[in-house]
């Protein structure tokens, strides 16, 4: 009897182990699968267009008789919106993380965390709506610009969308710093701010960097809000208040209008591959930076 039960337990153990193993490997399978299918749709376009012109060309006229497929302006659009968004979100996000983790009382912290999580739960189409109906008139009146849906509008929305991730990851990073460091600094007579700036931030820099890069990833990949709020006009922006168009928004706006298998359709998938590569490079860079810091 005991032996049989052992046998059953062994089988169950093995089965669970296998299941967990599959769960672990599935992430890799999905990533490669997605990349494969996107690439398969887009690859035929590589034979029809010049890759150099695709990446650097400023002209995106996919529906003309002589179509041009240059995504240079879209890349600049995505990068500029992301950069401005991060310039706003990093100080706010990390500042909020420091406040939540080090400065406020327990009740304020719990309240703030709930509110920040709510912020993260707002669907991106609602953000886009806010961009159109609230931010746009504010920008027109506040800065006296002719068009309210522009680079700056999109960047503010992206900043607001990436702040919650930065706060929660950043707070975790600061919370993970051993309390003995805080006590050491306080016992030497450091103020709270001195403790944060001179001890906690250096100690938590890996986690804080991860928080920032997750925010960057969120901003690059965001589609709906930027589609609605950036004006969706394909050109290289010259000022903060020029309308721009991003890689993601172009795919979302145009994919439904193309016929399956056309060059336009395939090029849009190629843009997908490009986005994939950008986020891959950002993540890889993050990994390398974090490892480099750790080694030192």
């Amino acid at each position: 009897m005991a032996e049989r039960r052992n046998g059953m337990e062994m089988v169950a153990e093995k089965a669970i182990e296998l299941l967990i193993r599959i769960c672990g490997i599935s992430a890799i399978v999905f990533v490669f699968g997605i990349f494969f299918f996107v690439f398969r749709e887009g690859a035929p376009a590589l034979a029809k267009i010049d890759l150099g012109e695709f990446l650097t060309g400023g002209k995106w006229i996919p529906t003309s008789h002589q179509p041009r497929y240059g995504v240079g302006a879209l890349i600049v659009g995505t990068l500029s919106v992301t950069a401005v968004a991060m310039a706003i979100a990093v100080p706010f996000g990390l500042g909020a993380a420091v406040f939540v983790s080090e400065f406020c009382g327990r009740r304020t912290r719990e309240t703030l965390k709930i509110v920040i999580e709510l912020l993260a739960a707002i669907p991106s189409v609602v953000w886009g709506f806010i961009g159109l109906s609230v931010m746009s008139p504010l920008l027109i009146h506040g800065f006296h610009v002719p068009v309210g849906v522009n680079l700056f509008n999109g960047a503010i929305l992206l900043a607001l969308m990436s702040v919650p991730i930065m706060v929660s990851i950043g707070e975790d990073a600061l919370k993970a710093v051993p309390d003995s460091y805080r006590e050491a600094a306080l016992a030497l007579g450091a103020t709270r701010w001195q403790t944060v700036w001179r001890v906690l931030v250096p100690a938590a820099r890996n986690g804080l960097l991860a928080a920032v890069l997750l925010g960057v990833g969120r901003a690059i990949g965001e589609t709906m809000a930027v589609l609605m709020a950036t004006g969706h006009s394909i050109r290289i922006p010259e000022t903060l208040f020029d309308p721009v168009c991003t890689l993601t928004a172009t795919i979302a706006a145009e994919l439904g209008e193309t016929s399956k298998g056309s060059t336009h359709y395939q090029v849009l998938f190629l843009i997908g591959v490009l986005l994939f590569s950008i986020t891959f490079v950002v993540n890889l860079a993050a990994d390398l930076v974090v490892k480099g810091i750790r080694k030192r």
Binding site: P178, Y181, E183, A184, A203
Partner: peptide, 11 residues
């Protein structure tokens, strides 16, 4: 103050 576990700062 000197603590039970040595706690030099991570500097």
């Amino acid at each position: 103050m000197v603590f039970q576990r040595p706690n030099p700062l991570p500097l």
